[in-house]
Design a protein around this nucleic acid. Structure first.
Length: 507
RNA sequence: GAGCCGGUAGCUCAGCCGGUAGAGCAGCGGCCUUUUAAGCCGUUGGUCCUGGGUUCGAUCCCCAGCCGGCUCACCA
């Protein structure tokens, strides 16, 4: 205790706290003890002021509670001290330590903010009418060698988002509301599982490493297997394996899993993210629209308590039914002069517009009717779809895995669900005609040869699977991170991913 | 990948016209037997993101880089 450390920089504080821990060990106190028995969560300790005795009314038979939590504040007042501990949900308990309880009082000088502390005692009402525990036993359970930055109680919030994302543990200590976002995300996923389990879907886990890239339009990550001495792709979708399982006889199947796309990062994109994909035999995309409405309603109720929610100041209603609109009608409404039904004229129309707006990098490798229509939709409609809207009848060129519509084979039996101007779900009646599927893969290969880095590989095994016969099936994928953003009202995908991708910390 | 904005004490931030830096909180040493973001006395702490340049002199001006945020492009 003779240390006269005056350093207040980080190294000095760490050194001081480390010496403190060593001193304690020298006195026979384990600074990282694990023999304290908690009887109650801090949240579960009764604190109804009306029912609590004043200090001199405490009776020997009044219940005792043993709690533990992080020490966030210490007010020492001579021969008495008040401490605040915070528990696992961000709730606080006030401790009252008097000089009369000698051992407990003596420990105070070895405690520092951020330490994990255990306390045992009886609850009472302080002179200013606050609930507090009169501590009979006080224990240091974990010495925090490194001081916590910023706000504990009082002090300032840590606002530097970089350190918040890099050191999520610190972020969560400083901001209990951050932990709450991730609890809600967990609730969302749990509820989603229940929803599908209740309907007889089987949850599976398929492979992440693949030798062919498919199931979506995206650039993959490449990795290398040493023993096989071959490059493998990290999956960009779970689609093809799940449909293999439908061929194999699991009529209702889903996977909640991480997928990887080697593309840009921004407020709505992280290189690894989580999707649910589900497939149901003998269903159509129209059945899935109804199912999707039920799912979104249920998730909103479970996470937000109702179907009327707010996202970043916008009021949204997730109450069924959602609006349904074909892509052509949507484009027509936004651009009355676009020749939506004339395939060649529409390509010319879009090509001309692209020349007029030179800032676009859009490659000329895939300008056909389907891409032209989709381009107009994405440019002029997508961002305006605030309330939940199903966009149906996508062109075949942008849907290499979807079933053609029986009446208008240039379009397919597909929908995407949009909300707050973003895509949230993508679903279609699955293409199960192996001959057509081979042709679609062929055109993907041609696109890839022409420089389209997002085109799929020809998946021979998948075609072979379809040749064995896949029942008529509908399938859907939903981005869980975006859904979590929506239901927790977070502005950035980084706020719903525990450890979002950042550049490595500089040396 | 492009544009804009930012990086100063552990945290939040000031810092004028270029003269090598301040506050609050945290820390450290005291005082106080009912505090509530306690109070009072004293006190420590800085690679001003990095590297160049201009200058007698750079946290400040210029250039390059690193990291982050936002917008745009690609994508979900």
């Amino acid at each position: 205790m003779s240390d006269q450390t005056t350093d207040s920089d980080l190294e000095g504080q760490i050194a001081h706290r480390t010496r403190k821990a060593e001193d304690l060990r020298g006195k026979g106190v384990n600074p990282w003890a694990n023999d304290f028995h908690v009887t109650h969560a801090i949240a579960d300790v009764p604190r109804d002021i009306e029912k609590l005795p004043t200090e001199d009314q405490i009776a020997e038979q009044d219940p005792r509670y043993a709690v533990a939590g992080r020490l966030l504040q210490m007010n020492e007042k001579g021969k008495v001290a008040f401490l605040f501990l915070r528990g696992d949900r961000g709730e606080m308990i006030q401790l009252f330590v008097k000089v009369n309880y000698e051992k407990a009082f003596a420990l105070l000088k070895d405690l520092q903010l951020g330490d994990i502390v255990g306390a045992r005692g009886q609850m009472f009402k302080t002179r200013i009418g606050k609930a507090a525990m009169r501590v009979e036993e006080l224990r240091l359970l974990t010495k925090a060698i490194r001081p916590l930055p910023g706000k504990l109680l009082g002090g300032q919030d840590v606002k530097d988002v970089e350190s918040r994302y890099r050191q999520r543990y610190v972020d969560m200590i400083s901001h209990p509301e951050v932990a709450e976002v991730f609890r809600k995300r967990a609730r969302l996923v749990t509820e989603m599982r229940r929803f599908f389990d209740d309907r007889g879907y089987v949850e599976v886990e398929t492979r992440t490493l693949l030798s062919t890239n498919g199931g979506a339009a995206a650039r993959p990550f490449v990795t290398h297997h040493n023993t096989l001495d071959m490059n493998l792709y990290l999956r960009i979708a779970t689609e093809l394996d799940l449909k293999r399982l439908v061929v194999g006889g699991i009529d209702r199947v889903y996977e909640i899993g991480r997928i990887f796309r080697n593309e840009g990062m921004d407020r709505f994109h992280n290189p690894e993210f989580t999707t649910i994909e589900f497939y149901q035999a003998y269903a159509t995309y129209e059945d899935l629209m109804v199912l999707t409405e039920q799912l979104f309603e249920r998730l909103a109720v479970a996470v937000c308590g109702g179907t009327e929610i707010t996202y970043q100041g916008q009021s949204l209603s997730l109450k069924a039914p959602f609006c349904r609109l074909s892509m052509r009608d949507a484009v027509r409404a936004a651009l009355p002069d676009a020749p939506v039904d004339d395939r060649e004229a529409l390509v010319r129309y879009v090509t001309q517009r692209l020349h007029e707006t030179p800032h676009t990098e859009h490659a000329g490798t895939r300008m056909d009717y389907g891409h032209a229509l989709t381009h107009l939709f994405e440019e002029h409609v997508e961002g305006t779809l605030i309330q939940p809207t199903f966009i149906t009848e996508h062109p075949i060129e942008v849907s290499p895995l979807s079933r053609r519509n029986d009446r208008t084979p240039e379009f397919c039996d597909r929908f995407e669900l949009f909300l707050v101007g973003k895509e949230f779900a993508n679903a279609f009646s699955e293409l199960n005609d192996p001959i057509d599927q081979r042709a679609r893969f062929q055109s993907q290969v041609a696109l890839k040869a022409a420089g389209d880095t997002e085109a799929m590989d020809y998946d021979e095994d998948f075609c072979r699977a379809l040749e064995h016969g896949m029942p008529p099936t509908a399938g859907e994928g939903i981005g869980i991170d975006r859904l979590a953003m929506l239901l927790t009202d977070q502005p950035s995908i980084r706020d719903v991913i525990l450890f979002p991708q950042l550049r490595p910390e500089g040396a």
